[in-house]
Design a protein around this nucleic acid. Sequence first.
DNA 1: CATTTTATCGACATTATCGTATTAAATAAA
DNA 2: TTTATTTAATACGATAATGTCGATAAAATG
Lengths: 112, 112
Amino acid sequence: MKRTFLGEFEEIVLLTVAILGEEAYGVTVTQELEKKTGRTVGFSSIHTTLQRLEEKGFLSSRMGGATTERGGRRKRFFAVTAAGQKALREVKQVREELWAALPSQTLQLMVG
Amino acid sequence: MKRTFLGEFEEIVLLTVAILGEEAYGVTVTQELEKKTGRTVGFSSIHTTLQRLEEKGFLSSRMGGATTERGGRRKRFFAVTAAGQKALREVKQVREELWAALPSQTLQLMVG
DNA sequence: CATTTTATCGACATTATCGTATTAAATAAA
DNA sequence: TTTATTTAATACGATAATGTCGATAAAATG
């Protein structure tokens, strides 16, 4: 393939990172995503996706330093890049246009 | 797997069918989708997706009758089912909530 | 060195996409 | 009125990308 659009899961992961701002890493993203979408995901799914998004240039990451907590490996923090923001805007736009193109009658039936 | 959410492409195909109403079949869906999204797709992609959406219960289909045109096979017309409408509403809702959860500062940077 | 927290790996299922083949209908030719 | 030919559309088979897990390895600190 070649396209490299934003997959459906990739999109909500990306949005979740944007919501979390400075605090976005594997665990928080998993929790926030579950909280906001009601969808349960193992965090290895999140990690894989985070990694792919970084490869695509939609996210950047840096390793965090030591913390005051009990133990645990260092966190890898993520941030949405300019390209990531653009991608989000674009898919949003396209979908809004599609919804806007629905005949009002159909829309009535669908949303009421 | 098991989930059977709506894939990203599946979603816009479904929306396109909704937009077209009575006139939705392989060719028109392809054209309308390209027109509305600016994305080029071979129509075998559309057919495959249409079929999957039907298997998932988000679309129903019926064969059309003879036409007045030169030649050509009968068309298979598609229509969004109640389940399809529900699925569309749900993904829309989730995304809107995610966008709404963005810190206003972030939103500023992203959309301006 | 044991425990805790998180990240990385490897594997498999589902979706996205394409190219090509096949089918069906409508008319032209024989 | 059969048989070709043309045209419009769908079905099929194959491969790449994305979605999801479970298991394993790393770092940090008591």
